[in-house]
């Protein structure tokens, strides 16, 4: 569908333009806004992974804040206590989150739908307790504040400030993760995810290994959340896992997926940026009424879902299809309206 709507050249051009704009942002905006953009990037990374699980494979998780926290603590502790370089921690976090995700996703073989959502809720509730019990950070608290990567000499030309350098690191990691997700859903694995979501019993009869797909999608989404946690540490400078924060992060990832558009590759990214700016906008609306902002945010969220139940990307596609059909109808007014043998809205 998209292939026909926009040529490969148009899409490559749009991608280059987007990356160009993203690269230009920290040159123009100050440190506060750059931190906000970087936050949008790490939420987008986690949402990309959660979308593989929830959007493509239909398994709802309200516990991915725990994997995020896991990645964050792994990076922070490796950097702080063992003197590792930030980038060196990423492969370790990726492998460890993948393994933990597979272990947690194992019950998903038997437990479905809302029950699974509840198990993951338990994960989000439990993780802060585990951290409180086993992590001994700065001054006996659970906070770990590692030394952050600084802008190296060769990068002074385009990123003289450390926050700019960190933004570019986050952006690079984000682009790599995006391309990985893009390739993943377009291949055999992606189609298997959809088949299992739509009807797992039917999928297994055509030779799809249910266990591998279900546990695999859990593990991969945990990997994404873990990497997002590492990037989060680099951006915010600390690893923390309060009860409220972990739960809120888990919700934020889901919100980003749903307002962006489930089961679209671009959706979580659009959703994450929309989410971050919506949150910021509701904070700015009544600066002296900080308490009110979650209320406005909650209402805005419900209204947005009401207007665009299939998310921003889904809504945009629907509008695009509608407009094209109108255009075609105008060009060939008497064309007979035969149903196409291949359904158009297959996506």
């Amino acid at each position: 569908m998209r292939g026909r709507a926009l040529g490969i050249g148009t899409r490559a051009g749009a991608a280059l333009l987007t990356v160009g704009v993203l690269a230009w942002l920290p040159q123009y905006y100050g440190a506060t806004d750059t931190a906000l953009f970087a936050k949008a990037i790490y939420i987008a990374i986690a949402a990309l992974g959660l979308n593989l699980l929830t959007g493509y494979n239909g398994q709802v998780s309200i516990g991915h804040g725990a994997f995020f926290g896991f990645g964050a603590y792994a990076t922070a502790i490796l950097m702080n206590d063992h003197g590792w370089d930030f980038l060196a921690t990423l492969p370790v976090v990726a492998v460890a989150s993948f393994v933990v995700g597979a272990a947690v996703g194992f019950p998903a073989l038997r437990v479905k739908g809302l029950y699974l959502a509840l198990i993951t809720l338990g994960l989000a509730a439990l993780f802060p307790d585990l951290v409180t019990k086993y992590v001994h950070g700065t001054g006996g608290t659970t906070l770990v504040q590692p030394p952050l990567p600084t802008s190296p000499g060769w990068a002074q030309g385009f990123a003289p400030n450390d926050d700019q350098w960190r933004y570019y690191l986050a952006l690079t990691i984000g682009i790599v993760m995006f391309i990985l997700a893009w390739n993943l859903v377009r291949g055999r694995f992606g189609r298997a995810l959809l088949a299992v979501r739509d009807h797992d019993a039917a999928a297994s009869t055509i030779g799809i290994d249910l266990a591998r797909i279900k546990v695999g999608s859990f593990a991969i989404s945990a990997l994404y959340a873990g990497i997002a946690g590492s990037v989060g540490v680099m951006v915010t400078g600390l690893a923390n896992a309060g009860r409220v924060e972990t739960f809120q992060l888990s919700i934020n990832f889901l919100v980003a997926v749903v307002i962006g558009g489930t089961a679209t590759v671009l959706g979580p990214v659009v959703g994450a940026w929309t989410f971050v700016f919506l949150e910021r906008a509701t904070q700015d609306l009544f600066p002296d009424q900080a308490l009110l902002s979650p209320a406005i945010f909650g209402v805005a969220l419900i209204l947005l879902l009401f207007a665009l139940p299939d998310g921003i990307v889904g809504g945009a596609r629907r509008t695009g299809r509608f407009a094209r059909r109108k255009l075609q109808a105008r060009r060939a007014p008497r064309a007979p309206d035969f149903p196409s043998p291949i359904r158009e809205d297959r996506q």
């Binding site: 919700i251 009110l292 209320a295 909650g298 879902l305």
Partner: peptide, 16 residues
Amino acid sequence: LVIVIATLGLFLALNS
């Protein structure tokens, strides 16, 4: 899933 998110929105709104 959309309804789950809507109740989560309600959660945030009511709490604040």
